[in-house]
């Protein structure tokens, strides 16, 4: 009878080696971007494994010799229990289309698929809940979308919104909900509302887990450390989810993005958006707005904030946003 145990990858080197060997044998990359790892053992032999990274279940492998022994269910149950301990009832998994059925029989529902990868979720609040809240914000007429982190909201973001707002009846601006930025999600949402309030046809919404999130596009948050091949697959799924579920709910036929000369991960994302959108959604790629010859970027703004470089901040930020940051800064000067 196989036994469930936690594997401490950084401490137990023998078990870590067995774990890596099992993943390799199963044709999976040995991905160390994991937080908690579980194994099913027969004595000292590792038969199956699954790991958690945030809400994502990954590195799931069962030894070919031990298949059909129902080793997957206790592993996933352990992962759900771990999430439950952290106050979450929501899990995501990426898998190959060929193994999708196993996870569906364990309560997962498919969200979006590309040719190589399927993204599934289990638990709540789920995509249906999110689409329901979008439905309530829906307005009639033509519609475009912009997805932004707005960390913080710059004159560049404002320019992008203004261009879209001139061409479409409604512009839905989605602000990333992940709490992995200098400014909190609540602050970023407030700044975008403040910075776009002059446009009566702009609707500001959160992305929750379904656009450029820790679930759909985790590489975005790794930036320099991201594996571009992995980022490409995630970006494709993120784009497909937008095409297959989010855009139809709001009647969105176009998306606006800025050219991305600086970050390779974001550049990969824009390329995959273009590929997934063909025949469905028009992608408008606008050149970056520049001030005094330099393209505006939120990264530059954050550096200027750190250096208290007032003249740069005034150039790159709307006065209302600059005021907001000064009023809400915990290290106000």
């Amino acid at each position: 009878m196989a036994e469930l145990r936690r594997i401490w990858l950084t401490i137990d080197h023998d078990e870590a080696a067995a774990w890596a060997a099992l993943l390799t044998k199963s044709g999976l990359a040995v991905d160390h971007q994991v937080e908690v790892t579980f194994g099913m053992f027969e004595g000292e032999t590792l038969l199956a494994t699954a790991s958690l990274y945030g809400q994502i279940i990954k590195c799931v492998a069962v030894d070919p010799a031990a298949q059909s022994e129902n080793l997957l269910a206790p592993l996933l149950q352990a992962a759900f229990d771990q999430l439950d301990d952290n106050g979450s009832q929501h899990a995501f998994i990426y898998t190959k289309p060929s193994t999708q059925a196993f996870f569906q029989s364990l309560g997962f529902k498919p969200l979006a698929h590309s040719d190589e990868v399927v993204l599934l979720e289990r638990g709540y609040p789920d995509l249906d809940d999110y689409l329901h809240t979008l439905q309530q914000a829906k307005r009639p007429g033509s519609a475009a979308a912009i997805v932004m982190n707005a960390n913080p909201f710059t004159r560049g973001h404002h320019y992008l919104v203004s261009q879209a707002a001139q061409q479409y009846d409604t512009v839905y601006v989605f602000v990333l909900s992940a709490e992995r930025a200098l400014f909190s999600a609540a602050d970023r949402l407030a700044m975008v509302k403040l910075g776009t309030q002059e446009f009566s046809n702009v609707v500001v919404l959160p992305t929750r887990d379904y656009m450029v999130s820790s679930a759909t596009f985790p590489s975005y948050f790794l930036k320099d450390r991201a594996d571009l091949a992995v980022a490409k697959q995630q970006a494709r799924i993120d784009a497909e989810l937008f095409v297959q579920k989010i855009a139809p709910t709001l009647g969105i036929t176009a998306r606006f993005v800025s050219e991305e000369p600086l970050s390779p991960v974001t550049a990969v994302y824009n390329t995959e958006l273009a590929a997934a959108f063909v025949g469905h959604i028009q992608l408008h790629v606008l050149p970056r707005k520049a001030v005094a010859g330099a393209p505006i970027s939120a990264t530059t703004v954050r550096q200027a904030l750190q250096n208290a470089d007032q003249s740069t901040l005034e150039k790159l930020l709307l006065p209302s946003i600059y005021r907001y940051i000064k009023e809400h800064s915990s290290h106000a000067n």
Binding site: A73, P74, L76, Q77, Q89, G107, G123, Y124, P125
Partner: peptide, 9 residues
């Protein structure tokens, strides 16, 4: 939303 039960056989 709330749930009860496991995936065990």
């Amino acid at each position: 939303a709330a749930s009860a039960g496991t995936l065990e056989s």
